[in-house]
Design a protein around this nucleic acid. Sequence first.
DNA 1: ATTGCGTCCGAAAGCGGTTTCGGGATAGCA
DNA 2: TGCTATCCCGAAACCGCTTTCGGACGCAAT
Lengths: 346, 346
Amino acid sequence: MKRTTLKDLARSLDLTEGTVSRALNGYADISPRTVDRVQQAAVKLGYKPNQNARLLATGGVAEAVAYVIPQNHSSLAEPFVAQLLRGLDDSLSRRGWDLLVSHSRSAEDEAEKISRLITSGRVSGVLLTRPFRNDARIKLLQEAKFPFVVHGRSAHCENYAWYDIDNELAIKTATLHLIEQGHSRIGFIGAPLYYNFAYQRLEGYKLALQESGIDYDETIVEITEMRDDAGESAAANQLDSDHPPTAFVCVSDTQALGVLAAVRTRGLTAGADVSVIGYDGLKIGRHANPPLTSMAQPQVQSGRELGDMLLAIIDGDDPTKHQVLKRAELLLRNTVGPVVKDRNYH
Amino acid sequence: MKRTTLKDLARSLDLTEGTVSRALNGYADISPRTVDRVQQAAVKLGYKPNQNARLLATGGVAEAVAYVIPQNHSSLAEPFVAQLLRGLDDSLSRRGWDLLVSHSRSAEDEAEKISRLITSGRVSGVLLTRPFRNDARIKLLQEAKFPFVVHGRSAHCENYAWYDIDNELAIKTATLHLIEQGHSRIGFIGAPLYYNFAYQRLEGYKLALQESGIDYDETIVEITEMRDDAGESAAANQLDSDHPPTAFVCVSDTQALGVLAAVRTRGLTAGADVSVIGYDGLKIGRHANPPLTSMAQPQVQSGRELGDMLLAIIDGDDPTKHQVLKRAELLLRNTVGPVVKDRNYH
DNA sequence: ATTGCGTCCGAAAGCGGTTTCGGGATAGCA
DNA sequence: TGCTATCCCGAAACCGCTTTCGGACGCAAT
């Protein structure tokens, strides 16, 4: 039960392979009558061109790109992924390209997967996310001269294409918002600093404090994994201390959700006793308790733009022409309120 | 700046293509010395085998499967997708296969995408989700004799592979749980009934009522889209009626979240004044207000099993041997409580 | 000096398409 | 009827790699 090939088709029609091929591909030098016969026969015999042969002959490239999903990606942040995916697909499918996703469980695993991807010839471009400050994957791709774009950027991002949110500005905005509400003791729930975005967000926090003449106090900055439980225990830590913060700025909604939990279990209410602001603008934040104020970035749109960028680069564009920096918007919900000075809940 | 081919390599080494090929592929009839030279040269010249040519020559198939993501998929239910994706990738990457995702915006679009997938030769299997009771996509795949498995099942599911949760049982369990708490006027927030799972879940609801001697009252069943806002307005409808339900069972967490919102805005509290139970066991339900009781199904695991099934079928297994029915677990959180008879909140 | 037997590599035939080139048949025109 | 222009199609090379087959060569055994 072999697939029917061009040769089969040709034989059954008493034509040559070349003729059949041209008929199928709409060449002008085939009589309409023949084209017809060929098409009929093609569907009848269930002919499906062998893609490998076709691409080999035409010298075509794989019409697909890969999205490599970061390793220990918080399961709560996954809406993020799904949205991006959709945007990407939007962009790619406009050209009929395919999207291939690849997970990985460790950094080495990821490097290995990437080199497999670039040598396999299965994709002609790669999309990276959540780069480290100093990212080996980027170096890999650069050395291989393989088309790629990164969602986010590493510390040295001059020579490749990226699409990022101004993390510094975003967190600075968030922090200033808190400060405007009278808060001055603002806890920071961060992520591991080898992530460049985490580093930048911490910088933004520091900047806001500095501009406002507030001293940076490292005892109220917590660096945790981007999970809700991590955020929760970090916040618990802070809230149970002698001199707890009156507000928290978090680098992810996931962590912020955890912070809210910690706040609740202590009989406090966010937005009144304690203010909390997250990052990502996840839709589910609307259903949090209370609805979570956050810094939002439109993911679907990001995916779309990232796809377009990647496509352009594959087409030969200079990657350095594609470096876009967006800004996040403050998404006001209910977890931020003016400071209460006389709080005393111990 | 062409890629270096086998021929280039061979010429540079003064060997024939055949020899170089065998050297690279570890044939035993090549002297170690030569193997060495070839490998050296290969990395020096940056040789990457052309995958199309290789597959053509070996008659190999595409080592990839596609996951087609349902059309108007609720953005809030997306954690669902991400989890499944991860499980799938787990299964596939064990064999070095790739995962290709494909979205679609309409039913026709989807059919078109599927037939493109099966003729393109880019994948050798397809995973479908959320089938309709009568699903054209399944027919398409069946007629094409293309390997596939579906997550869920259609009304007639005897002849293909599927992996599903016992929807009827799950919702019956949920409903009975509510009944045990004394509720007898239980609203149902359903999804469009052309989805088979939606149909089955409604059946489960009816079954539970019937077993408990409660009359089915169609004025308290609402069929809505699987979005939070849809759930919210449906619940609002019910709550504002003359004779409102004391509890709701929903076919998705997404809708349940909306129901909770409706409950809150009316000054009621779920778990006390009104009971609510969702479906999906989304992790974020933990952060809902209050934390959402739900019927849970492990998505990552599902993805893994689905991947294994698909692989097995591609390997030639009889699809009908792969039909697995799991059961959902009742995930107790805080939105269910005993009925309060004297409620009066108008 | 034959014969025999491994070892290692060259030659060549595909795999299933695409595309260029050229010529036979037919039609148009004188 | 003869000549050229046009229309269709056949022939064949090629894309880059795999794999079978056989032969050259070197060495030990006879």
